[in-house]
C-alpha cells in the first residue's frame, strides 16, 4: 500500500494542482498498486516518514504564511523524511517554502523551512506563460510542459535543477534552470498541473516510491496517447522538437 500525503488541500489549491495527486493515485490504481490518500490539514500532526509520496502545492500569499507557521512546527520530521528518500513533489509556493528564505521587495527576509539550499527573491514582474523543460530521469531525457505563474525568482545554491528550460522562464528567467531536485524531492514552478500530462515523470516517482518501500518497482506501461498528444501539441506550439 502506497500512502500519499496531500498537504493542506484546503489551503494550497491554486491552479488545479490537486491534479498531481490525482495523476499519482490514478496511475497506481490502473496498475493495481494499492494506494491511499491522506489529506493533512492545518494543526494536524504529520509523521512524514510514514508516507510514500508527499505533495505540497502553492497558495496565495496569505495562505502561504499560515502554512509556513504550521509546517515549521514539524520541520524536523519532514527533513528526516526527505533525507531518507521520501518522494516529494513541491510546486510553486511549496517549492519556495522548502528553501532558505523569501526576500521581500523591502529587503526583509521571510525564513523558509531551510531544508533545501535555495532561496527566492520577490521579482518586479510576474513570470507567466507556457514552459517546456528537459529533464533527465534515470539516464533518459524527457521533455515536460506546463504553465508557470510566479512573482518570486528562485536561485539554487547547493542543489541540482530539475531540468533545463527549453522555452519559458523557469526559476528566474536568467539561468535557464527550472525547479530543483534533491534526493527524491522534486520541485517545480510548473502548473498545468505537472504530473497528468507528463506521465513519464509521474511513473518515475511511483517507481521511486515503490523502491523505497521495498516493493517491486517495475512499472507496467499504460496507454498514454491523450497525454502524449497534449504534451506534443504544446511542444510544437513552443517550437520545441518532440
Amino acid at each position: 500500500m502506497l500512502k500519499v500525503c496531500h498537504l493542506y488541500p484546503d489551503l494550497l489549491n491554486l491552479y488545479g494542482d490537486r491534479g498531481n495527486v490525482l495523476a499519482f493515485t490514478r496511475r497506481c490504481s490502473w496498475r493495481h498498486i494499492p494506494v491511499q490518500v491522506y489529506q493533512a490539514n492545518l494543526g494536524d500532526k504529520i509523521d512524514f516518514e510514514n508516507f510514500d509520496f508527499l505533495f505540497i502545492g502553492g497558495g496565495s500569499d496569505r495562505e502561504q504564511t499560515l502554512l509556513a507557521a504550521d509546517l515549521s512546527r514539524q520541520v524536523d520530521s519532514l527533513k528526516r523524511a526527505i533525507e531518507d528518500g521520501l518522494v516529494v513533489l513541491a510546486i510553486c509556493g511549496g517549492y519556495q517554502l522548502l528553501g532558505q528564505y523569501y526576500q521581500m521587495p523591502d529587503g526583509r527576509k521571510i525564513p523558509g523551512l531551510g531544508i533545501l539550499d535555495l532561496h527566492t527573491h520577490s521579482g518586479s514582474k510576474r513570470l507567466i506563460g507556457n514552459v517546456a523543460v528537459e529533464i533527465e530521469l534515470a539516464g533518459k531525457k524527457i521533455k515536460v510542459t506546463g504553465f508557470e505563474n510566479h512573482g518570486g525568482k528562485t536561485f539554487l545554491n547547493g542543489v541540482a535543477p530539475l531540468g533545463q528550460v527549453l522555452s519559458g522562464n523557469g526559476n528566474n528567467g536568467t539561468d535557464h534552470q527550472e525547479g530543483a531536485r534533491y534526493k527524491n524531492a522534486f520541485c517545480s514552478y510548473l502548473h498545468g498541473p505537472l504530473l497528468p500530462k507528463n506521465p513519464a515523470l509521474t511513473d518515475h516517482m511511483i517507481s521511486l516510491a515503490l523502491e523505497r518501500k521495498g516493493m517491486d518497482s517495475t512499472i507496467v506501461p499504460l496507454d498514454d496517447s491523450f497525454e502524449e498528444e497534449a504534451n506534443g501539441k504544446m511542444l510544437e506550439r513552443l517550437g520545441v522538437r518532440r
Binding site: N13, Y15, G16, D17, R18, G19, L22, I128, G129, N130, F147, N149, H191, G192, P193, P196
Partner: peptide
C-alpha cells in the same frame, strides 16, 4: 485565460 489548469479545479 491562457492558463487552462483551472480545468483541474
Amino acid at each position: 485565460g491562457r492558463d487552462i489548469s483551472w480545468l483541474w479545479d
